[in-house]
Computed example of a mutant assay.
Amino acid sequence: MSGNRLYLSVSLLLSVGYFWLGWSLMQPEPKHNFTPCLFKNVTGIACPSCGTTRSVLLITKGHLQEAALTNPLGLLAAIIMLTLPAWLLYDFFRREKTFYNNYSIAERFINKNKKIIIPITVSLMLGNWIWNICKGL
């Protein structure tokens, strides 16, 4: 992926994430069990990422432990949503490509070590999925 395409894609994804987070923050406390998760609406079973928005919302209110228990992916999402905009802005104003360079290094590392990384990632996601199902998310 080219540098410009990467920066544009990440910026758009971050914008969508911040829009969704802002919209979610403005909603009153839900009085029903509505979920935007297509997987859960079709199957009735929580997906591995179910509860991520709730987890990030809890982080914005300072409830880190509750956020981690709701869905640990929310912690990762919050870290990404806090660090990437600053990194992208740094590169923009300094006219550098540090994010792209680090992305390229990470991509090469993952491709070189995918026999180890893929099973670990799949195991972690399955563990998170089981966690979501067991707690009745």
Rank of each mutant, 00 (worst) to 15 (best):
T60Q: 03
T60E: 06
T60Y: 02
K61S: 07
K61D: 09
K61H: 12
G62A: 08
H63L: 15
Q65N: 14
E66M: 09
A68F: 12
T70M: 08
T70E: 04
N71S: 06
N71R: 10
N71M: 03
P72K: 12
G74K: 00
L75M: 10
L76I: 12
I80Q: 02
L82G: 01
L82T: 04
T83F: 10
L84C: 08
P85A: 02
A86E: 09
L89A: 03
L89E: 04
Y90D: 00
F92Q: 13
F93T: 01
R94V: 05
R94I: 04
R95I: 11
R95E: 10
K97R: 13
F99Q: 07
F99C: 08
F99M: 09
F99P: 04
N101A: 15
Y103W: 15
Y103Q: 04
A106D: 06
E107T: 14
N111R: 14
N111Y: 12
K112I: 11
K112H: 11
N113I: 09
K114G: 05
K115G: 14
I116P: 11
I116Q: 11
I117H: 04
P119A: 10
I120Q: 06
T121V: 14
V122I: 15
S123N: 12
L124M: 07
G127T: 10
N128S: 07
N128Y: 00
N128I: 15
W129D: 00
I130E: 03
W131K: 01
W131G: 03
W131F: 13
N132L: 02
N132D: 05
I133R: 07
C134V: 11
C134Q: 15
K135S: 00
K135A: 00
